[in-house]
């Protein structure tokens, strides 16, 4: 629909934001991706259908689906695709677009990513304990109980969870790099 108005088609936005994304134009709708996906049964749409929807300019439906968020990054689809489409990377692009456009309904998944990244940007290292507590406090307080008593406790007892985050020395350098990258990507990555 947008194509006729001279606006860039959704498909091209997706392609341009993905290294090697131009392979997407070759999709044969064979379903190898959907058949390979470990979480395919729980997705709103299989990756194959997502690609058909992208081609049909169904941007809202695509960006609000759980499909990219349920991608486990196992790359089975990418290595099996007979048209060599970098499907996992396209899923990363769709997540990123969903967040930017505010069209996503998978708060739980995107918040997990955002919390994780928050620690990386502040400390330069991931912080599992902080991640688990902050994220679960917000989304799933019941899980916190589980954390404290079950698995989390086991990990703590085994000395496998740290109570304080580690920080890299040259965090200023890392932040400068990330800020520059964000600037560049705002101009269309």
């Amino acid at each position: 629909m947008t194509a006729q108005n001279g606006r860039r088609r959704f498909k091209h936005e997706v392609i341009d934001a993905t290294p090697g994304g131009e392979q997407l134009t070759l999709c044969l709708q064979c379903g190898t991706c959907g058949g390979s996906c470990p979480s395919g049964a729980d997705m709103d749409h299989t990756p194959r259908r997502i690609f058909a929807m992208i081609d049909a300019d169904m941007k809202d439906e695509v960006l609000s689906s759980n499909t990219p968020w349920f991608c486990v990054s196992c790359y089975y689809c990418s290595v099996r695709c007979p048209q060599e489409i970098p499907i996992t990377d396209l899923m990363y692009t769709l997540k990123q677009m969903a967040i930017r456009e505010g069209r996503y309904e998978q708060r739980r998944a995107s918040d997990f990513s955002e919390t994780f990244i928050g620690y990386v940007e502040s400390y330069g290292r991931a912080f599992e304990m902080g991640l688990a507590t902050r994220y679960h406090l917000f989304h799933n307080p019941m899980k916190m109980v589980g954390m404290a008593t079950g698995m989390g406790l086991s990990l703590l007892q085994k000395g496998r969870m740290s109570l304080t985050p580690e920080r890299i020395n040259n965090i200023e350098q890392l932040q400068a790099i990330l800020n520059k990258a964000k600037q560049l990507s705002a101009g269309g990555a």
Binding site: K95, Q96, S110, R125, I168, L174, K180, A181, K182, S185
Partner: peptide
Amino acid sequence: WNCCGASEYFSLNQLPAYAL
């Protein structure tokens, strides 16, 4: 060394993820 971003940073913003 700093964190590789796991799969999370690539989900949010690919370019800073590659830079990281």
